[in-house]
Write a protein that binds this DNA or RNA. Structure first.
Lengths: 365, 365
DNA sequence: TTGTATGCGTTATCAG
DNA sequence: CTGATAACGCATACAA
C-alpha cells in the first residue's frame, strides 16, 4: 500500500468513490455530513496519507490561519527576554486556537512597516499584534486601520493613538510609584534612574516623585539601551560622578542586571552600598545575586490576552457579528516584588567617600 | 483617491489598463517584462495599495514560503533560552530568505508529530527544521522522509537516524573533554555531573574520563530536567551526601545557574569551595556571579546553518537540480570558555568537613 | 515584451 | 445528506 506523494482531494475522492465535497466536509467540523461517511473518510485519509492542502484551504476560506507579531523599531525580538516572554504568550494562544505565528524580527529595506504592508494588504495574516514602543508614531499605522485585517496594540496607558486600534494597555504607574516609594521609605534620597525610554509613564512618575520629595537631580538620570552592556555603562557613569546615588531604579531588569555587574566591578555591595531595583520581573531577576527587587508585569499573559482578543475579533467578523467595539482596550497592571537587591540607606553617605577602588578587571568584554 | 479594500489582481489590471499577467510579472523578479511597465505597475500598486495576495500566490506557485521549527518532546521552546537562541538563528535566516517561520510549541492531542503530519502532508510549510533530542526515535520520522517536503535534523554526532535526513551534527565530545580536563588539571578528583540527558555523548565522555582517571563514582551523577529548579535540587542532593564533589559539570548553563544558587544557599563559595562549569554558553552565563565557565556552542549559528541548508535544498529541487546529497551532514564543534566559576581544588578537602551550615532561607519558592 | 486561457487544491453554492 | 460546479486570486504555458 504505497502512499501517493501528491494526493489531492480529487485523487482521494476518486480512490474511495466519493465526491470532493464530501471529503471537504469530513474535514470541516460542524458541516452537514453523516457521521458514518465522515468516519470512513477520516480513516481512509489516515491510511492513504491524505491531508488537505493548507494553502488551498486558506485561499478558498479567505483566511490564512496565521497571526503576525510586529515590534516596530526593535528588530531583535528574540534577543530581548522581555519580548521573548511576550512572544511566548502570543505563540501559545495562537497555537491553541489553531493559528500559526509569524514574527517580524529583521529591519527591512524600504522602511519598518514594509512587512506590515505585505502582511495586511497581502492578507498574509489574519491579524497582527503590534507591540508599540512609546514615542512610536502610532499615526503611521492609521493607514492600516481601514483595511480588513484586524490589529491589536500592546502599548502603555495614556499612549496616544490607542484609539486607532483596540489595545492592551500597560498601566505602569502604580508599579513605578510602589518601587520609588519603597526606596524612599528605605531612606534613600539620591535615587538614580537608568532607562531606555525617556518618554514613558515610568519616567514621568520618577520625575514627579523626585520633584515632590525634593530629591530631583537630573544628573542622576541616564539614558541607554536595554541591554546588560547599556546598564553596566550607565551605572559606571553614575558611580563615577562626585555625588553618586545610593539607590538606582532601572527601567528594565536587563538594565538592572548590567548595573548590578557594574556595582560589583567597583567592589561595592548590593544592597549595603547601593540598592538596585528593576522592572519586568524576568525569569533572570530571581536568579541574580542578590535576587533582584523589581516591578512584576506578567508579560506572557499580556501576549496571550492580546492574541485571544485579536482572534475573538476576526472570528466575530467572520460570523458577521461585531460584538466587540473597535476601540476596546484592556488594562494590565504591575506589582512590586521585593527581593534582596534593595535595602536601607544607612551607611551610604559614609561609603560614598571611603569606597573608591580601581574597578575589577573585566574578563569578558 | 480612495483605497479599495479588496483589490485583486484583476481589478488592479483593469484599473491601469493592463493584463493580469503583466501585473504578476511585475512582482516576479527575473520575469520577462520591460523595466518601464514594471516601474509603472509598481508605483501604481503603491498608490492604489495593491499587494499580491500571498495565499493565492503560494497556491499557484506551489510553495508556502513558510518553514516549520519542530522540537519533538520539548513543548516549551520559548521557555528554554537555549532553544530561543536556536530559534533566533532559524528565524533570522528564514526571514532574510523571505520565509516565514512557524513554531511548534504545544503538545497536541493525538501524539507529538500530529502537527508535523499537518505541516508536511498538508504542505503548510516548504521545509522543516527538526531539533532532535537524543534518545528520540528518529525512525518515527522516516514516514516523512518519503514526502517531498525537505527536513533537516539538528542532532548530536553519531546519533542514529542521521541517515534519514540531512543534518547538522553537534560534536560535543571535544568540548566535554576540554571541560573535564580543565577540572582535572585544577586538581579535582571528585567531579559531579548533573544532566538532563543520560544518553548523549557528553555523558559518555564523562563516564569514560572518570573511568580512565579512576575518579568514577556514580553517586556523583544526578539526572534532572534542564531548569534552574532542577539544577538547584540536584546540587542540593549532591551537597547533602557524605562525600560531596569539589567540582560539578552541568550539562546545561541553566542547570549550572540553579546549581550555583544551591551552592550559595549552603553558604559555600564558588569557585573556592566548589567549582562549577556549564554547557552552551548562553548569554546568562557571562552574567552570573561568578561568571560561569562553560562550553561554548554557537546555537544561533546552528539554527542559521540548518535553515540556510534547508532553503538551499528546496530551491535546488525547484530548479530540478539535486546538487546536494540527500544525507549531507555538517558538523559544528564546541569550545571551552573559562570564566570565574572554576578554580583549583586546594582547600576543598578541608572545606568538606568544616563547612556545614544550615541552608539559607529561600525567599522565593 | 504582452495578453489569453488554464491550472493550483479547496471551499461554497445550489441542485438533487 | 450528497454531488456537480463555480469561485478563491494568482502564476504560467502558450500564442500573439
Amino acid at each position: 500500500m504505497d502512499i501517493q506523494r501528491n494526493l489531492t482531494i480529487k485523487d482521494f475522492a476518486e480512490r474511495i468513490g466519493l465526491s470532493t465535497a464530501s471529503i471537504s466536509r469530513a474535514f470541516t467540523p460542524g458541516s452537514s455530513i453523516s457521521e458514518a461517511t465522515r468516519e470512513k473518510i477520516l480513516t481512509e485519509a489516515h491510511i492513504l496519507g491524505y491531508v488537505p492542502n493548507q494553502t488551498a484551504r486558506r485561499l478558498a476560506q479567505r483566511h490564512s490561519k496565521l497571526i503576525g507579531l510586529d515590534y516596530p523599531g526593535n528588530a531583535d525580538v528574540l534577543a530581548d527576554p522581555y519580548l521573548v516572554e511576550l512572544a511566548r504568550g502570543v505563540q501559545d494562544a495562537a497555537q491553541i486556537a489553531g493559528y500559526g505565528l509569524l514574527l517580524n524580527t529583521l529591519p527591512r529595506p524600504g522602511g519598518d512597516d514594509e512587512i506590515l504592508r505585505e502582511w495586511i494588504l497581502g492578507k498574509a495574516v489574519d491579524g497582527v499584534v503590534i507591540v508599540v514602543p512609546l514615542g512610536f508614531p502610532v499615526d503611521s499605522l492609521k493607514y492600516f486601520a481601514s483595511r480588513d485585517i484586524p490589529c491589536i496594540l500592546i502599548t502603555q496607558m495614556s499612549s496616544p493613538g490607542a484609539t486607532v486600534f483596540p489595545s492592551i494597555q500597560l498601566d505602569l504607574e502604580k508599579g513605578a510609584i510602589s518601587a520609588l516609594t519603597h526606596l524612599i521609605r528605605l531612606g534613600h534620597d539620591k535615587i538614580g534612574y537608568i532607562t531606555s525610554n525617556t518618554c514613558d509613564s515610568v519616567h514621568r512618575v520618577y520625575l514627579e516623585m523626585m520633584r515632590e520629595t525634593g530629591f530631583l537631580d537630573t544628573s542622576l538620570i541616564v539614558e541607554t539601551e536595554s541591554t546588560t552592556g547599556g546598564g553596566r555603562t550607565a551605572m559606571h557613569r553614575l558611580l563615577a560622578a562626585r555625588i553618586h546615588p545610593t539607590a538606582v531604579f532601572c527601567r528594565t531588569d536587563i538594565i538592572a542586571l548590567g548595573a548590578l555587574r557594574a556595582v560589583k566591578e567597583m567592589r561595592l555591595r548590593v544592597p549595603e552600598d547601593i540598592s538596585i531595583i528593576g522592572h519586568d520581573d524576568l525569569l533572570l531577576a530571581e536568579l541574580s545575586d542578590p535576587a533582584l527587587s523589581t516591578v512584576r508585569i506578567d508579560t506572557a499573559k499580556i501576549g496571550r490576552l492580546a492574541t485571544e482578543q485579536l482572534i475573538k475579533r476576526f472570528q466575530a467578523k467572520a460570523e458577521g457579528t461585531h460584538p466587540i467595539s473597535h476601540t476596546t482596550s484592556t488594562c494590565v497592571g504591575t506589582e512590586l516584588i521585593i527581593r534582596s537587591s534593595t535595602g536601607p540607606a544607612i551607611a551610604s553617605s559614609a561609603v560614598q567617600h571611603i569606597r573608591r577602588h580601581e574597578p575589577m578587571p573585566v574578563s569578558v568584554l
